[in-house]
Design a protein around this nucleic acid. Sequence first.
DNA 1: CTTAACCATTGACATTTTCAACGAATAGCG
DNA 2: CGCTATTCGTTGAAAATGTCAATGGTTAAG
Lengths: 152, 152
Amino acid sequence: MTTPTDPSAGLERLLEAELTTEPVFLMARAASTGSSAANKKLAQLELKVRHYSVLALACGEERLTQRELSQFLVLDPSQIVAILDDLERRGAVERRTDPRDRRSKIIAPTAAGRKLYAQARTLVENSTAESLSPLSPAERDELSRLLKKVAF
Amino acid sequence: MTTPTDPSAGLERLLEAELTTEPVFLMARAASTGSSAANKKLAQLELKVRHYSVLALACGEERLTQRELSQFLVLDPSQIVAILDDLERRGAVERRTDPRDRRSKIIAPTAAGRKLYAQARTLVENSTAESLSPLSPAERDELSRLLKKVAF
DNA sequence: CTTAACCATTGACATTTTCAACGAATAGCG
DNA sequence: CGCTATTCGTTGAAAATGTCAATGGTTAAG
């Protein structure tokens, strides 16, 4: 098993570049490599991170409307529609008209959806473990803590 | 001056959602909000983060080829072409055929380019300060340190 | 009851990503 | 030296993503 060559190999001399101190850049790069790694793993379930995120929320404690999903995930309502079309076609979630406000639709997971989420979750955790492998367990926790403060 | 309403306001009940513990999700969200904030500031210079990144590297110590920019920024070579077309049209950078390998082109900043970078850098720093405002100075340093370890 | 606002959805459009193919130039090897 | 394979920047097409206005159905406010 050959280690996949780092695409940015041979550029160690750039580690001192001013850009390397910019959090915007670091975040973008970390997020980009991280989610593309996760997407690769999720591909075997024909999922992408965006589907995984919606599915995860659908499988959570709170029952959410599409509007709420849209706000929380910072995605346009129309994108939520597309993602839900995929997930619903696969029988992973259901749209239920909110009885208290028939404009909204509440997203609920099916049994198959929960199963799918369980599998996906494992894959994502593997991917995360690899992505964060340069960090110690304590550092991973700290990173998550800091990101959470920034992201909300 | 009214504080722009947080788009994800009223969803505090989701802060305990399982998804909130996933670094992939946190990174994506932090990166997304962070760079869209930076983009807004950079708009007054008619720049985006991607242009800023290339300009920053061009203004650094190392003289880089397009291929190297592409690898370091994890962007397709064709995207580098487009970004450089913009920057060159504005007279911020120059493409110089590498005398040691006439296939490659070395990117060099012009005087105007350095000036532009200086202005842009200030804007980005302001944006970063706002984005990371929920963190203490020590936490910001720690976040940068951790991100750097992950991103490279 | 009427008007304004909200939700999910659709469709159009811009931006970004991804990929294959090309000419020019170099590197490796006989 | 000559031939072949590889690399570089560039172009163009296709797919994915993001952004935005308009719609029908529904609710809220007066």
